[in-house]
Design a protein around this nucleic acid. Structure first.
Lengths: 141, 141
DNA sequence: TCCTAAACGATAACTATTTTTATATAATAA
DNA sequence: TTATTATATAAAAATAGTTATCGTTTAGGA
């Protein structure tokens, strides 16, 4: 894995412990955390970290294409270090957000957009429903 | 068209001028307005209307399945009287939000979800990009 | 018409986020 | 290395969108 510090430097960002911490945290998780969750996760090991810095850092990262923002009908945004547009599933019971890969969908969407004379920059597909775990709980309960 | 009053009554809601106004406004537009826009549109003809009532009314309608809430990377939610899940295009320049109908997509999504053991309740597809009008403006400018 | 629960409007409160400001720190050049 | 300087930081205050509160009004049934 390339050094986080180097990636930040290449993007023209000054390298600070806070930025490294936020980016590494996002790289190491697949749970699509929001700003609050990121802050809470980093606080123990980075006692000087502040929530405002997390927000500002995420905003920088977003603009530079280091992270992706995700809105799933919650009050706050979630973040993903996987920048490429990809679909997600969101469990309406436990709130779990998971990635979902499906390249052939993109082609269909592009064809559709072409018909509409709409130039697609990014397509966002979110499937809301019940995840396997919650379905099982229903069956048992 | 069925009377708005009757629809509200069937849903167990008391029929008030405010609720009728909000619902009719949503039925008559295709621009997916947010609460603020709805309020501003109704204020002239309903001088006693308050923004809080618009929010409360939209919340009722949402819970009863009379309207659909839509989040398109803006600070505020937009609303649609078309309840059935359907894709949207969002122009990142002018902010225009349009409906997009495509039934065969649903089948693809369902098949995909089945493989994942995920029970889909609602699928949300949003294409972000540049609308035809804004593309034309670019070409001219 | 009268009664009562529900809805209303005004405004305060709340939450997520952004901005401000004074201080601290990273990158650069000497 | 050290001094410089622009940028980043933390904390607090401000903001925007939304929700809660509360006294008043109204819809719908008796």
């Amino acid at each position: 894995m390339r050094e986080t510090a180097q990636i930040l430097r290449e993007k023209g960002l000054k390298v600070t412990p806070q930025r490294i911490a936020v980016y590494n945290m996002l790289l190491s998780t697949s749970e699509h955390p929001n700003a609050e969750t990121i802050y809470k996760a980093l606080e123990p090991t980075n006692p000087t970290m502040s929530l405002a810095t997390v927000y500002k850092t995420l905003d920088f990262f977003k603009q530079l294409g280091l992270v992706q923002e995700l809105n799933v009908r919650e009050g706050s945004s979630r973040y993903d270090a996987v920048v490429k547009c990809h679909p997600h599933t969101v469990c309406t019971e436990c709130g779990q957000v998971r990635d979902l890969y499906m390249d052939d969908l993109t082609d269909i969407h592009k064809k559709l957009a072409k018909e509409l004379d709409f130039e697609v920059e990014c397509e966002q597909l979110i499937l809301y429903g019940i995840c396997a775990d919650c379905q099982r709980k229903h069956a048992e309960g």
